[in-house]
């Protein structure tokens, strides 16, 4: 059986910080994200003919914009930056995790006294810390927009309402459902991507030749859908949090 580790393994130490393999991979994804953003910005400033890559990214952004337009309507341009950033970063991470070499290049490290071999790269969303961080960003942006649109009084009134016992009890349930959003956001993304990695490893172990190809296609689709679902759910929760209750 191939060895599968549920947590990211440390590969080296830098100034006292432990660098795990998933963090190491996320650094490359971060560089790619910054490169594409800067390149797109410079191309958009250029007068005259632009190259095909610019129009491809622009088409991509426009289709996602129209998707969010069906949720927010006129207010889309306010929320679009954070939602598209979440979407773009997650989709790049998911697809970067499927690249050849991720998980298959092994290096030797020492843990305590024994020497072990760990993969140099690991899909970043297959680490619960990353998805928890993304879930916290989504969660706090929901609360932030809710306070911004309802005011601090209106925001607190959603959760602590002493008008009658039933409303008070619903307020308590609302607090629980708000907090459980963090759990469901992070577990959904982590579970899907990690399950995909385990599936690919097992299939490649059982039939080493060509059999993992359809699963690779499935994983590309799952990576897209999960990025879409993450940003779409954030959008739906924000639009629910900013409307005024009666």
């Amino acid at each position: 059986m191939p060895k599968i580790s549920i947590k990211a393994e440390p590969i080296f130490h830098l100034f006292g910080f432990t660098i795990t393999n998933s963090f190491f991979t996320s650094f490359f994804v971060f560089l790619i994200t910054v490169f594409i953003s800067v390149y797109f910005y410079q191309q958009s400033k250029k007068i005259g003919k632009k190259n095909g890559f610019y129009y491809f990214i622009k088409f991509f952004i426009k289709s996602i914009y129209q998707l969010f337009y069906s949720v927010f309507g006129e207010k889309t341009s306010i929320f679009f930056p954070i939602l598209f950033t979440l979407f773009f970063y997650i989709i790049l991470q998911n697809w970067f995790g499927l690249m050849p070499g991720i998980g298959s290049i092994l290096i030797k490290t020492t843990e305590g006294l024994e020497t072990i071999t760990v993969p140099l790269f690991r899909g970043n969303n297959a680490d619960l810390n990353t998805t928890l961080a993304l879930a916290l960003i989504a969660f706090f942006s929901i609360q932030f927009y809710s306070i911004k649109y309802l005011g601090i009084g209106g925001y607190l009134k959603k959760f602590f309402n002493f008008a009658n016992p039933i409303v008070f009890f619903i307020g308590i349930l609302d607090i629980v459902s708000e907090v459980s959003k963090i759990l469901s956001f992070s577990f959904r993304l982590f579970g899907n991507i990690f399950a995909g990695e385990v599936l690919m490893t097992i299939v490649a172990f059982l039939i080493p030749f060509l059999a993992s190809f359809p699963f690779l296609m499935l994983e590309i689709f799952v990576g897209f859908v999960q990025a879409l679902v993450f940003s779409m759910l954030t959008a739906v929760f924000i639009s629910g949090a900013i409307e005024v209750h009666h």
Partner: peptide
């Protein structure tokens, strides 16, 4: 449909995460 599918699928994913752990 895709949103609702993701919600339904998440339950199975929780079970899968528990099994994998």
């Amino acid at each position: 449909m895709i949103l609702a599918l993701a919600f339904a699928e998440a339950i199975a994913i929780y079970a899968l995460v528990v099994a994998l752990i």
